[in-house]
Design a protein around this nucleic acid. Sequence first.
DNA 1: TTGAAAGCGGTACCAC
DNA 2: GTGGTACCGCTTTCAA
Lengths: 365, 365
Amino acid sequence: MSQRKAIGDAGRATIRDVAERAGVSVASVSRVLSGNYPVSEELRRRVMKVVRDLDYVTNAHARSLAGGGTPTVAILINNITGAAFAHVAKGVEGAATLRGWLSLVGTTGDDPERELALVNLMRQQGVAAVVLLGGAYDFEEYQLRMARFARSLDAAGSHLVLVGRPPLEGDVPATTVDYDNESGAYAMASHLLSAGHRRVLVLPGPAGLTTAQGRLKGARRAFEAYGVPFDPGLVRHGPYDDEHGYAAVKAALHDTPDFTAVLAGTDVVAAGAMQALRAEGLRVPDDVSIVGYDDIPLASQLTPQLTTVHVPYEEMGRVALRAVADRREGTGPAGRRKGGGDGEHLVLGTHVVVRDSVRPPRRHT
Amino acid sequence: MSQRKAIGDAGRATIRDVAERAGVSVASVSRVLSGNYPVSEELRRRVMKVVRDLDYVTNAHARSLAGGGTPTVAILINNITGAAFAHVAKGVEGAATLRGWLSLVGTTGDDPERELALVNLMRQQGVAAVVLLGGAYDFEEYQLRMARFARSLDAAGSHLVLVGRPPLEGDVPATTVDYDNESGAYAMASHLLSAGHRRVLVLPGPAGLTTAQGRLKGARRAFEAYGVPFDPGLVRHGPYDDEHGYAAVKAALHDTPDFTAVLAGTDVVAAGAMQALRAEGLRVPDDVSIVGYDDIPLASQLTPQLTTVHVPYEEMGRVALRAVADRREGTGPAGRRKGGGDGEHLVLGTHVVVRDSVRPPRRHT
DNA sequence: TTGAAAGCGGTACCAC
DNA sequence: GTGGTACCGCTTTCAA
């Protein structure tokens, strides 16, 4: 009947079209294309020619339905424009690509409902893993919610990976890739203290967010270690954005102007803080020192370049993917019983990057 | 690599499991879940209960094979950590989500081979559209390559969208979403000229990249309009990164130190330039003025805040997705039938955002 | 209203 | 080496 496939939207060419046109069976075409089966040179030539003529590509949906298919990782992120997250995503994507995996990115906008919807969506897609990025509010509910995600994904043959989030308690099938958040803050605060600062304005981030809590805790511990009283009045919580940094410094300058340094929860907050200090005629670091956290490119683009805590975001992404890939290949051929309570928890190190934003206090004692 | 389905109830539940357990037919389950068909309340209840019990979600691959399926857009980006691109991606993603579409992100790392591989991969996935982001090198080859992509995608029922790239010539089925690049540069340069600057160091970006060419051209036109001689010796090409900005300014300070302003190709380049000037003891904007291009968050995080050209990246993303969605629903602007060589080309405006990095020249003439 | 069955595009096992 | 063909999980006629 119809020798030619309609040119327009009549649908893309199928393996059957190729088979017919090459005068071979679909099985043969499949073999040629998969390349994992002995095929005569003649056949391969014939098939490949038609494939090129038709500009044929296999239907990924059909392929994964039938068994094969490209493993896919889903990255769920709050906000794709956040530099730190972007680096994690880059790490995941890069490592995925290296293995021929595909990666999906979805943004949750910090909305739990949307997060749930996305997790389910990814489950439908049959992804090999779902990577959840970024700090979280570790209420009792968080654990329950994540545990549910983990089991749900696990039951579907997928896997949950938490990056930069608190690990799950108990016997939950999820992998956590984390960094030593608290130690980073400890080291950063120590740096300030050893430079002689005693009155430090601390901007940990959103109260309740695990990363902020960890950073605050680390700082506090450093003060203790140095025998310096820690003034809660110098702690101001708020979002991880420059506006908060700006506003917080302005307010502090009004309320408790005797601080000689600012310990910001992120580089972006530090940027805002720097703006505010300058707007008030204060010089950085001559009058006030500032340090950040994250070590995103912004840190070295500011003037003075920001001393901050380096977090290996990109590597975390890579590690996360590797963990998933390994476990996938590690799964025995007989389909080892799942649900094995493997709550793997990987922790990467952080370190202080000293640049130009810290000087010994000078303003006054 | 062949994946074998695990035996037993391991693996994810299927529609058949649900049907069996609810004592109904698969067709009924399908109907309940799709919700686009009259079903008795009793049946719905029974099915939904089992769905919840089993934590069942439909297999997206099977669904799209069978006809249904969630439309998906693929965003192909050079580098996910670029702020400008991230904003476009955010726009696309947001608009996609709004319509219940899914979005995939792939990174090409500026590698043509990888780009090709990704386009084919997306074609396999049967995506509704492939969005290619960012400037390109418009050699003769570019047109051919893109035209091939466009037709290939079109034949598969998909569609190519170019964002921030030169439109395709001739009768090619692709949509281009662009911004008025050259005018932005013209306006930006005019701003400098009207402030009195005459010797301006221009850092357009990579030679050959269309965005860089447009920005340079716009600047040049402004000089002409102002009757100011344009010195090619003050133009330095290079990558869109801060290192180039830094190096270029250092070099210029050595070779042609009489410039009073820097017209950077992007905000990031401007950041690098600013660093270099300061490293040489020059003040911004007192000694040298600087302007950027893009208006990413960095622009307002620098001190002084950067005067730059605002490019509506996020909106471009939104517009791109809308264009695809419309054409898919046949609601296209002109309501034309597909297959027609409709090279839609949408252009968004840009404008100068005046902040604090420009002052009339003072150093000396 | 509900059920049976025919595909959707591929893969892989089984004969020849 | 190749060619049949029985699925994969779901949607959608077509009957009942």
